[in-house]
Amino acid sequence: MEIPYTYKARPDTGLYNAKVGIWLFLASEIMLFGALFSAYILLRVSAPVGFWPETALAWPRGLLNIPIGTFNTAVLITSSVTVVMAWASLQMNKFNHFRIYMVITVLCAFAFLGIKSFEYNDKFSHYVVQTKSGKPVTGHIEVNGKHPRFWNFSDQWTLARLTAENVKEISVAVDPERDEHGHVKSHSNHAHENRTIATDDIQFLGSYTPATHPFFAVYFLITALHGLHVLGGALVLAYFAFPGAKMWKDNPQQFINRIEVGGLFWHFVDLVWIFLFPVVYLL
């Protein structure tokens, strides 16, 4: 006996196997991301006041690059539309349209990931510096004339390391000033002012990385996990667009089903981002 309902729908459920499978999988994904969002909320609401040095708020706000985040949201939404268009093109028997839409989807996915890694890189060289004498400052730092880079973990600086390596001073390209809500103050000068801070004057130094604050830990964890989903989804969709498209000739219905299932996963990835974007960028 062969396995039934691999592409035809079972009459009493009205679904083929893969569709049941993907929805079950998505249900478990809801629990996975749900747990992460729950963790985020719990950590945020129970964070002690004054925990983030820059503001009186317990939780930092407005540290992420909103224009880039908005653009990335648009990229992901576009890819979500193109993937559903790819599916619709197959339904209308237009294979070439399908392939074009699919290629756009995959390109969008990689654009998203590229932009995301640019953001990551930016955060790894962005520091918060609490001085003994004044208000804390944030900005990109230069140590010994070099910017730290994210692919190099040994490039990360802490106060202990500055002291150990006998670095006398660091240079900070100071960010524009923010109000207590994390908004950039309207009257502040948007050009970066370079300030030199002596090591002796530093009380705390931390990059915008997981070790510095739970906010970054949550941010990096959820976006990285989301990024892995984007990558996985993109690879599968790319496979469907090219080598896997042979199936269109042998078994068109099964191929349409595959695109539908792949599309469902892709939309779910988009859904996660729809919540993730306001939660980590804006709130």
């Binding site: 035809k8 729908a9 009459p11 083929y16 028997n93 068109p252 219905q253 349409i256």
Partner: peptide, 11 residues
């Protein structure tokens, strides 16, 4: 006979 209620053919 059971599966006739499945998806319509594409096109």
């Amino acid at each position: 006979s059971i599966d006739s209620s499945g998806h319509e053919a594409p096109g």
